[in-house]
């Protein structure tokens, strides 16, 4: 099976992610607002969004932010909170291994929870255009950058987005994408229960995003141990 990397695939990925990117903009506005309160300039606010591009980590960074700027603490904390990305990018092997290191490692920069979810769901559906992933990332990245800047500039004007239910969109994305991943109770019931239960129990106990790492690990390790899984939809010989 050949994997391609075309502009059309990129466009498709961008458009598919647009509604989600609009929902995520709500968090971008909040990020910009808090950045302003913490004394970050507009340029600093945008630079962080453009280069770090990780919502939960950026909010955590603002939490720690003070004068003088604790460079090492920020670097370590943000690296740790993003550890889940390590597992997530490993899943992209069938798409990114065949397209060469430049496209693969370039695409990997644009990895956040929401666009990764859209990308992986599409990959599992059998789409063989790996540029789709870059498209999903660019959609989220562009809206994240813009909404952060708008939040920084018009901070005081942001009024309760929860009235519109927009804060729910981030959760809804993963819920909707879960449905086509269901392969029946024999394969998914126990791993999904393990993931949900672990995340739920550790949510209040552990700091940051450790509940995600633990939940994801619990579910996928149990799934692998039970050994009930089909062949990957795209087989890659490396």
């Amino acid at each position: 099976m050949t994997v391609v990397f075309t502009f059309n695939g990129l466009r498709q990925g961008y458009l598919r992610t647009l509604p989600i990117a609009v929902g995520v903009s709500v968090f971008g506005l909040v990020y910009g607002l808090v950045a302003g309160q913490k004394g970050l300039s507009l340029a600093e606010t945008m630079l962080m969004s453009a280069l770090v591009f990780a919502g939960a980590a950026q909010m955590l960074a603002l939490e720690i932010w003070q004068e003088p700027v604790p460079v090492l603490a920020l670097t370590v904390a943000v690296g740790v909170i993003n550890l889940r990305y390590m597992m997530m990018t490993a899943v992209l092997r069938p798409w990114l291994a065949p397209v060469g290191p430049l496209k693969a490692y370039g695409s990997l920069f644009f990895t956040a929870d929401e666009n990764w979810a859209v990308g992986v769901a599409e990959m599992r559906r059998g789409n063989r255009d790996a540029a789709f992933y870059l498209g999903t990332g660019l959609a989220l990245w562009s809206f994240w950058l813009l909404s952060g800047a708008l939040g920084r500039i018009f901070g005081g004007l942001v009024s309760a987005p929860e009235v519109w239910g927009l804060d729910f969109v981030a959760v809804a994305v993963f819920l909707a994408l879960l449905i086509p991943m269901w392969e029946g109770p024999g394969r998914n019931l126990l791993p999904w229960l393990a993931a949900g239960l672990t995340a739920w129990l550790l949510y209040d106990l552990l700091p940051g995003t450790w509940y995600l790492v633990a939940g994801g690990l619990a579910g996928s390790l149990l799934g692998a141990l039970l050994g009930k899984h089909g062949e990957p939809s795209i087989e890659v010989r490396s």
Partner: peptide, 16 residues
Amino acid sequence: GFLHHLPGAMFIALVT
């Protein structure tokens, strides 16, 4: 198997 089950487990952990 681990990589196959990871996305679903991760989505569940995110939403629960």
